[in-house]
Amino acid sequence: VKVYLPNKQRTVVTVRDGMSVYDSLDKALKVRGLNQDCCVVYRLIKGRKTVTAWDTAIAPLDGEELIVE
């Protein structure tokens, strides 16, 4: 899953069964001094942002793009 992060940064996270968006992005956010409490995650669908819950399973999102703001 390709993830666009604040400050024009981006990362790619590996999809693993049983993991949530929260778990999958935890390290990427912490390395950048961010956490899930201060950010909102969106799914990018056909160029439009849709709010996605942090506890959403990451497996069904394989191949999609997320935006964290």
Rank of each mutant, 00 (worst) to 15 (best):
D17F: 11
V40E: 08
R10D: 07
Y4N: 15
T52C: 10
K46S: 12
M19R: 08
W54K: 02
V1L: 12
Q9R: 09
G63D: 09
V12Y: 14
S20Y: 04
V13A: 03
I45S: 11
T52S: 04
L44F: 09
P60S: 15
K2M: 08
K46Y: 06
L44C: 03
L29Y: 04
L34E: 05
D37Q: 15
V12P: 03
L34N: 01
D55K: 06
D55M: 04
L5R: 00
C38F: 10
G18D: 10
Q9A: 09
V51Y: 08
K2F: 05
V12M: 08
V1A: 03
V13M: 01
V15N: 06
V1G: 03
K8Y: 08
Q9K: 12
V3D: 02
G18H: 08
P60C: 08
V51S: 07
V3P: 00
T14G: 07
R43T: 08
I58M: 13
V41Q: 02
D23E: 15
D62H: 12
E64L: 13
A28E: 09
K49N: 00
K46D: 15
E65K: 10
C39I: 03
T11K: 06
Y22F: 12
L61T: 08
K2H: 03
L25N: 00
T52M: 15
P60H: 12
V13H: 00
L34F: 12
V21L: 15
K30C: 04
K8P: 00
G18N: 08
K49Y: 03
R10Y: 14
Y42T: 04
V40L: 08
W54T: 02
Y4V: 14
A59S: 14
Y22S: 15
V12H: 11
V40K: 11
V3L: 09
Q9G: 07
V12N: 07
Y4T: 11
P60K: 14
R48T: 12
Y4I: 13
T11Q: 11
K46G: 14
K8E: 13
R16M: 09
G18E: 08
I58T: 03
G47T: 04
T52F: 03
K8M: 11
T14M: 11
K46W: 03
Y42V: 01
K49P: 05
E64H: 07
G63Y: 06
T11M: 13
V12E: 12
D26M: 10
L5F: 15
L29P: 00
N7S: 07
R32H: 15
A59I: 15
N35W: 01
D37K: 08
Y22K: 14
K2R: 14
R10Q: 14
Q36R: 14
D26A: 15
E65V: 12
R16S: 12
T56Q: 14
V51A: 11
Y4C: 06
L34C: 04
D26W: 11
S24C: 15
L5S: 02
N7T: 03
S24N: 05
N35C: 12
R32Q: 14
D26V: 12
C38S: 14
D55H: 08
R10V: 15
K46A: 14
G47D: 03
T50V: 15
C38D: 12
V31C: 11
Q9T: 09
L29T: 02
V51L: 14
V13S: 00
L25F: 01
Y4R: 13
P60M: 15
T52D: 00
D62W: 06
L61C: 06
N7M: 06
T56F: 03
S20L: 01
D37I: 06
C39S: 04
T14A: 12
G47H: 01
L44K: 13
Y4G: 03
T50A: 08
D55W: 06
L34G: 00
R16G: 11
L61R: 11
V1C: 09
